[in-house]
Design a protein around this nucleic acid. Structure first.
Lengths: 215, 215, 215, 215
DNA sequence: AAATAACCGAGACGGTACGTCAAGTCTTGAG
DNA sequence: CTCAAGACTTGACGTACCGTCTCGGTTATTT
């Protein structure tokens, strides 16, 4: 699903599928390019990332990159798209609180590891190419949806009662709070904070409402 | 307060305050530079913003910009820092729900108006200059704190009962959810969504807990 | 001969001759660059010659110039090196006096035509790059040697007696006097002066000594 | 005499002599500026000489230099003009050959010491400001004339016979040959060369002609 | 087997912008 | 009016990358 979506934006340079004469593209190169891009994204950040450096690092000609990606933003988008996605942790055996905690911890680690380089790409590319921005947003979105389902699935199966629409609520709020903490607040996204989020935000929201407040 | 904080990072090029020899800097130029920067940020977005264009638009030599700002990121940071901040709306006469609604609406407009250009600056500059990133985060933070106080101040004065730590909770959650919607979800941040946020997220969190939840 | 010598100094940016990978350089550009350089040298003089103007005039990117020449001095040196040298006039049918006169006249014209722009290059570049200065000196030297041989060759063939070492003596003295007149004295290098040089300096020196001077 | 000549070109910025109100110029500064200029001319050569560096080295404001000199060329011209001129050696007690030899040796040393920096100034300034070029030429000329008179004066007094117009001839030829050797030939201007010049060029020219050649 | 066609590396090319340096002018406060 | 300091505009510097192009050469499929 997300595959095709991303291909819509990054695949502008796909060869016509019917005309397969001539030497086929070397898949080795795609791998090398993606790896080099991710590497340099971490080393230098988005706007100090040069395509020439990616080409050099990947041992590849610039042509080979431009044949595959329209520009820097598309290159980065594709690299992120195809990176090892890292499945969210299995929470089937955990209680609700632990399931939430493990999940937001995993989320925070993902964001910290990726360093915001990919988000920089999203922002920088947004104005130049709205389609690219859309692709980036989808990439971000897919993991969050899957994550929400899995985090709350176990609890639901075990019959824990949840507020109606809990899955959507979780998908709206949890990533928002964690992303905001990592990127904008400048404060550490440590266990203390995550416990605060779980106990003071998520649990109150997701648990079924008690009887209407007396007053 | 935020002034000094920002000066720490963007003021690397400040002249030694004790050494007042020589022609003083012309404050007119700062204004022109900031205005031109904001303009072009809106017109072209962060990564298509060139310092040469800013200089031309401001009617100023490039040197005059470089004398004040180390690079593009610092220039943008300063421009945003010194822009007219736009006070959050007065909510003293409103009930809690309306106060929250008005406030998140104002927040969404602010973000939309600024187009994410300033956030692009934050991301792009993060790796190159962590101090700059810190400054940007502070800029983002200051309004949010003030906003939270004001949004909930009126309600508290009228004796509406709030959960303990409601102000902090609001400051943590509301901007996170709205920012996330605007920047990452790709979905419209319209009234329907904002009402959803207020009714399903903020109000449940901020209202005082009813009797202890049934164990 | 002079080709290789000049390439040693101006060719610092030559690509390795064995490595013929990649798109080859376009010789058209060299020609355009040299022509534009010579043009602007005449129009503006050496130190008002800007590389950007050369690029514009040649219809070429700045990079294309810097790929070939380290800096302004090298650019000018190369342009002069490759310019149409202008052969000294044929003096085979003339007597000695006329041969000398025609030759120094040609020399004076050469220097006047080149405006000292090239000599300015030599001086300006000397300190920055001694190798460049050496190349310039060679360029200056080659024509003078050829000229001396030709100017006196006809006379020698016709059996006119010359002092021993006359060719070397001529090459030492004639260019020196003419160059000095044109560049340093500020006085016109007209026919009267050139006749003076021929009659009062060159002929006395080059004619064979009469009987040993009275002790 | 040469003072006024130089003042014509470099003294454009002289204060009106009648209006001597206000603080008088500090002569100390002129000295410091000239010294710094000469220093830096030797260290960096003409075209790498910056007025800002001169100001810094002289411990003087840029204004103070521009109040006195129109531009770089004028600054350098003035510095050379006012430098300790170094009188040509006394040759009264020497024979003709030794007098000539000592004089051309002194000339060669002068030129070598000044490194061509000053000649670079002459060339560079020629196109921009013909008046400056004229001044530079005069500076060059005056020493040569004085030198010629002195070199041949002793011999004449002792009754050595000289060719008619010997002084002018010497002034024309000797500096030309030496300057040309130092600046253009790239070969050393050593004693061997200077003896060659004296024995093979100057003496034959300056000694009175023997009787007309027999043939 | 030969022809065809796309791939690939390398790197030249015209550009745009970078961040720096210096030129020459202007503006302050102090003397 | 002079001086030191330094801000200012202007313009060129030499560098880095952009995205395009042209080479020689490679690797498949199609004739």
């Amino acid at each position: 699903m997300s595959r095709e979506a991303a291909d819509v934006s990054s695949g502008i340079r796909e060869p016509a599928p019917t005309d397969i004469r001539g030497r086929p593209r070397d898949a080795t190169r795609d791998t090398a390019i993606n790896a080099a891009t991710i590497d340099l994204l971490h080393e230098r950040g988005y706007d100090h990332l040069s395509i020439e450096a990616v080409a050099a690092r990947a041992g590849v000609g610039k042509t080979t990159i431009y044949r595959r990606h329209r520009d820097k933003a598309a290159l980065v988008a594709a690299a992120i798209e195809h990176r090892a996605a890292g499945a969210p942790p299995d929470t089937a055996s955990l209680g609700l609180r632990d399931a939430l905690l493990v999940t937001v911890q995993w989320l925070a680690e993902q964001l910290t590891a990726q360093d915001g380089g990919m988000l920089g790409a999203a922002f920088a590319g947004m104005r130049s190419d709205p389609a690219l921005a859309a692709a980036m947003q989808q990439v971000l979105h897919r993991d969050q949806a899957a994550m929400a389902r899995q985090a709350l699935g176990g609890a639901a199966e075990r019959g824990e009662s949840l507020a109606p629409g809990a899955v959507e609520l979780f998908a709206d709020v949890a990533p928002a709070v964690v992303v905001h903490r990592v990127l904008f607040s400048g404060q550490p996204c440590d266990t203390a904070f995550l416990e605060h989020v779980v106990d003071d935000v998520l649990l109150p929201l997701l648990r079924p409402p008690t009887t209407t407040p007396p007053l």
